[in-house]
Design a protein around this nucleic acid. Structure first.
Length: 254
DNA sequence: ATGGCTACGATCCGTAGA
């Protein structure tokens, strides 16, 4: 099973890139973030023409998540139970016995800001929810834009980023709390090129300079991690004209 | 030098992302 996560930064703008990528890579499921579309405007027909269907949960302008698959998704749920949130950041579904959780973590804006507090509260609720999900679903995959670069090696210039949002200690602790549940960072199960990132700032030629961060992740339950064959960042879509600032991360299981 | 792109919805600038 081939699973992927991609923050498309507007599905309307990136739809052609997505359908091309689906045709090329033939994933079994892709978790999308920042679709920025209300459900009524989701491109169901265009995806269907590519042989894919989707479960989605969106809003205007901001956020929005979806899971895209060639096969029917079951037991679709949205949001974090017990965590009231207007922002559409979470959708989950079951495919071939694998529970897939698609996440768009809050950015946090700046350390100490209101949005930063919201990010940490969101992560605390996520942790508590995933603890139960992990117990209920031995085959659990958590994919998404988690908006945390977990270690120094996930940051192009750790000195420049020190203490900033996305790398602050409290955010990294929130990320580690997910690993402490037993989830594995699939990317680190394998040898990887140095300076591997999944996001590059649009400004200052970030991509050309490889001035990026690794903030998009695929976390796997122990059972899925044991069956994981590869995990890689696909930089090709970031080279296209008018790209998303994020690029897909792909894992192959079983 | 605290900017620099991009998307969006509102107009032709402000908000947000990361």
């Amino acid at each position: 099973m081939k699973l992927a996560t991609w923050n498309v930064n507007s599905l309307k703008v990136r739809l052609g890139q997505l359908t091309d990528w689906l045709a090329q890579e033939k994933p079994d499921a892709v978790c999308l973030q920042e679709t920025k579309l209300v459900d009524g405007k989701f491109p169901t027909a265009e995806l269907e023409a590519s042989g894919y269907r989707a479960s989605f949960c969106g809003q205007k302008t901001y956020n929005g998540v979806a899971i895209v698959s060639p096969r029917p998704l079951g037991e679709v749920s949205t949001g974090i139970p017990g965590f009231a949130d207007e922002q559409k950041r979470v959708i989950a579904a079951t495919l071939d016995g694998v529970r897939i959780v698609c996440l768009y973590a809050p950015n946090g804006q700046a350390v100490g800001s209101e949005k930063y507090d919201y990010k940490l509260r969101w992560y605390a609720a996520l942790r508590d929810w995933l603890a139960g999900e992990l117990a209920a679903h031995p085959r659990l995959a958590v994919l998404g834009d988690l908006n945390v670069a977990p270690e120094e090696r996930d940051v192009h210039d750790p000195k420049a980023w020190e203490g900033q949002v996305l790398v602050s200690e409290a955010e990294r602790a929130a990320f580690r709390a997910l690993l402490e549940l037993g989830l594995k960072d699939s990317f680190r199960l394998f040898e990887q090129p140095e300076k591997s990132f999944s996001w590059w700032d649009y400004r200052m030629m970030g991509f050309r300079r490889n001035a990026g961060l690794r903030i998009d992740h695929i976390l796997l339950s122990p059972q899925l991690a044991a069956a994981c064959k590869t995990c890689a960042i696909d930089k090709a879509p970031r080279r296209l004209e008018r790209p998303s600032d994020h690029t897909p991360v792909v894992a192959e299981i079983g």
